Amino acid sequence: MTKRSEVHWRVSEFESGQPFIVMEQYAGDELDLFKKFIGFDLPDGTSLDEAKQIRDLLSRKLIRVSET
């Protein structure tokens, strides 16, 4: 059976100041995927403002994740 969950995207930073994107469960079915930390590294030199723009795009365009 396929389960689906709405997601929340946030920007975080490594100790070095390099931003990265985190995907977190917001609502919906409990997915095994979210028993772990899910982070996405961005290219070196990505600014915090650029990371926020990416987060905003993801928030508008990727609203659910599915797991089978």
Rank of each mutant, 00 (worst) to 15 (best):
F40N: 05
L33A: 11
K52F: 03
G39Y: 05
L33R: 08
R64N: 14
D49F: 09
E13A: 11
E15S: 12
R60I: 02
M23K: 09
T2R: 13
R60S: 11
E30P: 01
S5Q: 09
R60Y: 07
F20S: 01
L48M: 10
S47T: 15
E67G: 04
I54N: 02
T46D: 04
K35D: 12
T46S: 08
Q25C: 05
R64A: 10
V7P: 01
R64Y: 15
T46W: 06
F40I: 13
F37D: 07
L58Q: 07
I54D: 03
E13W: 04
M23N: 02
E6G: 03
F37G: 00
R55I: 10
S59C: 00
R60F: 08
E67Q: 15
S5L: 06
R55F: 08
D56H: 07
R55V: 01
T2Q: 09
G28M: 09
E24T: 12
S59Y: 11
Q25H: 15
D29Y: 00
F14I: 00
M23A: 05
I21C: 04
I63D: 09
F34S: 08
R60C: 03
I54H: 00
I63C: 09
A51C: 02
R10H: 01
E30A: 12
L57H: 04
S12T: 07
L31R: 05
E13R: 12
S66A: 15
L58V: 04
S59W: 11
S16K: 11
K35N: 12
S16C: 02
A27P: 01
D49T: 04
P19S: 03
Q53K: 13
V7F: 05
L33F: 15
R4Y: 13
E13F: 11
F20H: 10
L57R: 12
I54L: 09
P43S: 06
Q25P: 05
Y26Q: 14
S47D: 10
K52P: 02
S66M: 13
D29V: 09
V22G: 03
S16I: 00
Q25M: 11
R55C: 14
K36F: 11
D49W: 00
L62M: 14
A27F: 02
A51N: 01
F40E: 06
I21A: 05
P19I: 08
L58F: 10
E15C: 00
E15P: 10
V11E: 03
L62V: 14
L62C: 14
E50G: 06
I54W: 01
F20V: 02
A27S: 15
I54C: 06
G28L: 11
K52L: 12
S16V: 03
E15A: 14
D29L: 03
